[in-house]
């Protein structure tokens, strides 16, 4: 079983990338589990026709120790196994602790042993702002971290922060930096400025997503590009990234 985590600045398209990678791999017969690590609990929304799933924290609050996998794990498009950590309402509680508690709960309920996914994709909210958000990159969780970024300055800044965290935690057996995914669909982007960052962290751009209105259109229709526009360049780009990750 491979475990990877996708990080990146808020709004950069991590969930879109994750969902499309998940479906691309699932279509090839790979058993995929996608775990959204965000209090908004909307990582897997495109895999469920726009429907939001009950989150682990939400269900755990209701059911306590009686919580079972049936309450929190759902099968989405192309058989992708979906799960959302969820977390507190905006402005309250501790989102980081929500992620820790949820991921520990999945382990405790033997989720990986029961569902036996070939790949687990952690879709992690934003930057590594506290201990909780570093959980998916810790020993025993993701082996590799991929960062979704544009070449826009703030996005590169977040990308550098995430890469730096991985560098700092090297001695602890945390995940390795797998590479960057250049998302050109959110803003006009060039590779040069990102190539510079690649040099700094001795990594590479593993793939890019071009600007195409169909991305917005697929999202409006609550579905993935792979599902709605399977024969387009963008779909091909997602497939290529999926192949590199699951090589």
């Amino acid at each position: 079983m491979i475990k990877i985590a996708i990080y990146g600045k808020g709004g950069i398209g991590k969930s879109t990338v994750c969902s499309n990678i998940s479906v691309a791999l699932a279509k090839k017969g790979v058993k995929v589990m996608q775990i959204g690590c965000d209090p908004k609990a909307d990582s897997t929304i495109l895999l469920h026709k726009g429907e939001k799933l009950p989150s682990i924290m939400e269900e755990y609050t209701k059911k306590g120790t009686a919580l079972s996998l049936d309450d929190i794990v759902f099968i989405g498009e192309e058989g992708v196994i979906c799960c959302e950590t969820g977390g507190p309402p905006p402005g309250t509680g501790c989102a980081g602790r929500g992620i820790i508690n949820s991921l520990e709960r999945l382990e405790k309920l033997s989720a990986y042993k029961i569902y036996k996914p070939d790949i687990v994709i952690f879709d992690v909210l934003g930057d590594v702002v506290c201990g909780g958000f570093s959980m998916p990159m810790r020993k025993g969780y993701a082996q590799k971290v991929y960062v979704v970024t544009s070449s826009e300055k703030m996005s590169r800044y977040a990308c550098a922060n995430i890469s730096m965290a991985l560098e700092n935690f090297k001695g602890r057996g945390y995940a390795e930096l797998g590479g960057y995914i250049l998302n050109k669909s959110t803003s006009p982007s060039d590779r040069d400025s990102l190539n510079e960052l690649c040099k700094d962290f001795n990594t590479q751009i593993i793939g890019e997503i071009s600007y195409d209105p169909i991305i917005k259109s697929a999202e409006e229709n609550d579905t993935t590009i792979i599902h709605s526009y399977p024969d387009t360049t963008v779909a091909e780009q997602f497939k290529n990234i999926a192949e590199k990750i699951y090589a």
Binding site: C94, G96, R97, I100, C130, G131, G132, S134, M135, R138, K139, F169, G171, R172, G173, Y174
Partner: peptide, 14 residues
């Protein structure tokens, strides 16, 4: 430490 997510496994190794 539970709230701030201290990684005790990693600290023990160090």
């Amino acid at each position: 430490p539970a709230l701030i997510g201290t990684d005790f496994t990693a600290l023990a190794e160090e």
